[in-house]
Design a binder for these strands. Structure first.
Length: 190
DNA sequence: CTTAGGATCGCCT
DNA sequence: GGCGATCCTAAGC
């Protein structure tokens, strides 16, 4: 096994900085994945964040060390993948909302039950299903198997806008997307 | 113990 | 654009 190229993320930075850095990074889980095209930042002093109000049984991983996976069940149906950031104990994270399917596409089609490439990973619940993310990966180290993070091959054009599906702090522009990508959960304005 | 409400998705009109 | 699925979490009594 060759050592995978490191993505070079500054995990100790603010969650919005990390969310922006993650656009263009290649994410593989057990060899399946592609280029991250959409993320959202969440932080402790953020009414829309699970970590708002301090540690609980569910959000405990958000208060652990950075560069680890925080996985939660949404609406009793969908698993969603987050990357913890900032210093240990802070309670910040980045929701991985969409990626461009590139590696292990057959496996993703099988898991999602559709051959439509645009429907494989264009949303946090779809992405988790396509990559085989479950609660078993909650708290897992992103620097170790089954995760691989690779730095962008070239400069990326990142757009920012309001986050999706929340009822508080709706105007905070902490959603980031790769400009022009057909694999976003929804188009970025501008 | 009870209950309201989700960082979503897909099918319906 | 609207809504039901489905179940866990956290807060309230």
């Amino acid at each position: 096994m060759t050592e995978p190229q490191r993505a070079g993320i500054d995990w100790d930075a603010d969650s919005d900085t990390v969310a922006r850095q993650l656009i263009g990074v290649t994410l593989l889980v057990n060899g399946v994945g592609g280029t991250i095209v959409e993320t959202e930042a969440y932080d402790r002093d953020d009414a829309a964040s699970h970590s708002f109000g301090g540690p609980t049984r569910r959000n405990l991983v958000m208060f652990g060390p950075p560069a680890h996976a925080y996985v939660y069940l949404s609406h009793g149906i969908h698993w969603c993948l987050n990357f913890v950031c900032r210093e240990p104990g802070h309670g910040a994270g980045v929701l991985i909302r969409a990626l461009a399917p590139e590696t292990g596409i057959d496996r993703m089609i099988e898991r999602r039950g559709t051959p439509d490439l645009r429907k494989l990973c264009s949303g946090p619940g779809k992405l988790a299903q396509a990559l085989g993310i479950t609660h078993a990966m909650n708290g897992a180290d992103l620097a170790a198997s089954p995760f691989v993070l690779l730095a962008p091959a070239q400069r990326v054009d990142v757009l920012a806008g309001p986050r999706i599906g929340i009822s508080k702090a709706v105007e905070v522009p902490w959603r980031f997307g790769l400009a022009g990508s057909p694999y976003l959960s929804r188009p970025m304005k501008g």
